[in-house]
């Protein structure tokens, strides 16, 4: 048995499918690829798959990963190619490799945000003013209900740039099974404090471990 980590993108139409839908797509593609995947044992065997932190609906994932197990040796390039051929266009495979870290070692994620605006300078000012607030309390929806949370500590170091047709930003946020901060919280705050609701594109660039090395 061999663990293989598949690297893929989640883009285009596929950005709008849930994590559960993603697992279903992957199951079908793995079946189609005819790769010797390992099935879980028990009454209802299913293709074994494990993911690092799920991506939120609508976000573009540049370097997503999923672990599978193979019962026979297959060259890694072949694994990537055979699976890639069977996935919809929004889920291109970027490679297959032996896992370096355990899935639960993921601790941080780098995000890129692009906020579309007719008046980039105006939006830039508002964002800067927002980030300069002493606290930025927003309501966070959790399983247990609504909870107020100050997001300033997470976003204060965010770099923002004025672009031709909007504002871009980069931010590193906690992303682990112990707790994650969703970059969309900043947009909630923007709406709440300035009334701005720009069209936003969130990209997760990749995951990092606790000591900020690239998750591989």
């Amino acid at each position: 048995m061999k663990n293989v980590r598949i690297w893929f993108e989640k883009k285009g139409s596929a950005r709008f499918i849930s994590h559960l839908d993603l697992t279903r797509c992957m199951t079908r593609a793995l079946r189609l690829s005819r790769l010797p995947v390992w099935y879980t044992q028990g009454f209802n065997p299913r293709v074994y798959m494990a993911f690092a932190m799920p991506l939120s609906l609508g976000a573009y994932g540049e370097k997503e990963c999923m672990d599978i197990r193979l019962t026979e040796e297959v060259p890694l390039e072949d694994v990537a190619r055979r699976l890639g051929e069977r996935l919809p266009e929004g889920l291109p495979v970027r490679g297959a490799a032996e896992p370096v870290y355990r899935l639960e070692d993921a601790a941080w994620a780098d995000y890129e945000l692009f906020l579309e605006a007719g008046d980039p300078a105006g939006l830039m000012d508002k964002l800067q003013a927002l980030l300069a607030q002493e606290t930025i309390p927003v309501m966070k929806h959790t399983k247990k209900g609504e909870r107020e949370m100050d997001i300033r500590p997470y976003f204060q170091g965010m770099e923002i740039h004025r672009e031709e047709d909007g504002v871009s930003g980069r931010v590193r946020l906690p992303c682990s099974t112990a707790g994650s901060v969703n970059p969309a919280l900043l947009l909630d705050a923007l709406g709440q404090y300035t009334g701005e609701e720009p069209l936003v594109q969130i990209t997760r660039k990749g995951l990092l471990t606790q000591d900020f090395s690239e998750f591989r």
């Binding site: 596929a14 709008f16 079908r28 069977r86």
Partner: peptide, 8 residues
């Protein structure tokens, strides 16, 4: 996901 197409 109902409105985006792009299916296999």
């Amino acid at each position: 996901g109902r409105y985006v197409g792009g299916e296999l």
